[in-house]
Design a protein around this nucleic acid. Structure first.
Lengths: 158, 158
DNA sequence: CAGAACTCGGACCTTTCCTGTCCGAGAACA
DNA sequence: TGTTCTCGGACAGGAAAGGTCCGAGTTCTG
């Protein structure tokens, strides 16, 4: 899994606190990461329709939907792509004992098992929303953590 | 996920049919894949203790345990490594609003959610064994498929 | 209304990991 | 004892992730 998923998730949690556009540079400074590279992840989120970009002098990124309607699966799919993690190359159709293509109406049993596990993973990701994460952060680090970030974002400091 | 997992799983299913050592070259010919590269995957399985290597003229690889006691999780961990797919870099401890290390007694909420999903994935993988896969292959492609491979392996053809 | 400053967006390089290959060490068989 | 076959780790090539840069476009300001 690409490490950009972690950055994207944290950014989504931070964007929860602001209704005004937040520039990518500010998100990078807040997390102390490369701004140029974080921009790439944010662009992926924008292409997926999870955040909306506002250009111009006081532009930035805003969440397009309510935090409780954005799941972790949405973010992971936006960054790592929608394709399955396990890809079946149809090994059974190769070699001296190849299964004829006519008999391959159902997926390969190996792929079926791997995809079933992936479905369990996706289902767990789809059950958690960005709002849940923000609530957990409040419970773990205290409400003053996100509140402080909120004022820092709106005050224009940096 | 590395593509070698697919090869390793198919090899484990094939090894189910033979109690005698099977050379890597024969497994490669059976699946029509690069023998040199398949050897690397088999070495990983051997290091993990899932298969046992027999050197010498009539050597090869044999399953060390009964097929019903080898889970898909064992194979995936052997090939892709035991580490978690999602790695937490502790972003919360960086930047101007860094959470002090003293307050980080519990894992980051983001990592907690991602790891919970991974646990669901691992649990699904641990619930399926190589024996289950072999049974599914029999049900899908017919019992003659694995039986034919078995005789081909023992006959020394190729 | 014109200029300037700030923003995103995509094109470009570097590094790491996966894919693929090779030859040597060691054991069993003749 | 010699040969043949096997595994095992060391050695290149290529794709993808990680990281950086500058230009197009928009907004604010004078």
């Amino acid at each position: 899994m690409s490490g950009g998923v972690e950055w994207a998730l944290h950014c989504c949690v931070v964007l929860t606190t602001s209704s005004a556009p937040v520039p990518a540079a500010k998100l990078a400074e807040l997390h102390d990461v490369s701004g140029s590279y974080l921009a790439k992840q944010l662009q992926a989120l924008a292409r997926a329709g999870l955040i909306h970009s506002v250009q111009g002098k006081s532009g930035g990124y805003v969440l397009t939907r309510a935090p409780q309607s954005i799941t972790l699966l949405d973010v992971v799919r936006a960054i790592d792509g929608p394709g399955p993690t396990f890809v079946c190359t149809e090994i059974r159709q190769r070699g001296p004992f190849a299964t004829p293509a006519d008999a391959c109406t159902t997926p390969c049993p190996v792929a079926r098992a791997m995809w079933a596990a992936e479905d369990a993973w996706r289902q767990a990701l789809a059950a958690v929303t960005i709002a849940d994460l923000a609530r957990d952060v409040d419970a773990t680090s205290g409400p003053e953590a996100l509140a402080g970030i909120q004022t820092w974002l709106s005050s224009g400091a940096g």
